[in-house]
Nucleic acid binder design. Structure first.
Lengths: 178, 178
DNA sequence: CACTGCATGTAATTTGTTACATGATTCA
DNA sequence: TGAATCATGTAACAAATTACATGCAGTG
């Protein structure tokens, strides 16, 4: 069961910021990269084993970081290599829009409910990102400006979703009372 | 090889708007739903066979629509059922943001290039959606308002991407000349 | 000492993509 | 009559999720 470059990139990248155990890695990917990335549980350990076998990461046996996986020189090179590869976009699959497209069959009220739900989700996402952004601003790290870039992307996207939802709810209301 | 509800929904939904051959279906999903949905080639025929076996679609043998797949009564019920199911969101996997997050390793200029690329893509997407929106506005169909909803979502998202890209490029420039 | 969280892994299953294979029809 | 497009499918492969299984360490 070979692993793909995508998962490798996330794992190597996370370890480039800090040595971690597999468990902590999973947690970091969920909480830190969670806004734009995800790895399923069963991916991480096999990927780590593979990377270790190829000499890209090493499990520290001693010292303060005992038990954690560390990026090797070769691993750092491999990461740079992977990052330089062209971005592969995943084919879009938006279940919400698919349902709205067939809104005539689904019914207007159900559509409204879906949109309201999407609006609430976006609102919550935005609040969370605002919180995280402020938190990141307080720490000092060479990665900070890049992290803020990704957070900003999430905020723009959330605000767009909210604006769209409001507009769409109004448009649906106009359908009922022409 | 059982098929999932997601693909079924897209296929039944497309056929609810117009009877089509499998080939046309693939084309319609690519061009009409393409902004927010995709089905790989090898999914459509097996799904159609499955739906036919269950009596949700029928291949018209005669008449003007000979050779096309048509939604049956049961199929229409099944579609309503599927549309009513809760939206399952796919786990996020944004290769662009993953790379930017590790921007320190990737390098500033490479980051800029990625963002410029993303901006161009969004710009092209927006122009295309504007075109499609105007096109849809001209025809008269009961589906029109719902279709416009999905197009509007794409436009909001594209505009957000452009604004984010501009902001981010400026932020990266400020890093170089503090 | 029971419970919670840390830590590591495997197996089964689902899902989806790519590439291949085939034949009919249309059009230049 | 050759090339392109329409049309239908299958097989091999790749990727990812879920659920299962296990053990240790700290703590109330």
């Amino acid at each position: 069961v070979a692993r793909t470059g995508q998962t490798e990139m996330a794992v190597l990248g996370a370890l480039s910021i800090q040595p971690m155990t597999g468990y902590a890695l999973r947690d970091a990917i969920r909480t830190v990269l969670g806004h734009f990335w995800s790895e399923s549980f069963g991916q991480i350990y096999p990927t780590l084993s593979g990377l270790a076998r190829q000499g890209f990461v090493a499990k520290a046996a001693t010292g303060a970081h005992a038990g954690t996986f560390t990026l090797t020189k070769a691993g750092r090179r491999r990461l740079a290599e992977l990052l330089a590869e062209p971005v592969q976009t995943t084919p879009p699959r938006n279940g919400l829009l698919l349902r709205l497209f067939f809104g005539r069959t689904l019914g207007r009220e159900a559509c409204r409910e879906l949109i309201r739900q999407a609006r609430d989700d976006a609102q919550a996402r935005l609040a969370e990102l605002d919180r995280v952004s402020a938190e990141v601003d307080d720490e000092t790290s060479a990665d900070k400006p890049f992290i803020q870039l990704t957070i900003s992307a999430g905020r723009h996207s959330a605000r767009a979703a909210i604006a769209w939802a409001d507009e769409s709810l109004a448009a649906l209301d106009r359908l009922d009372t022409p």
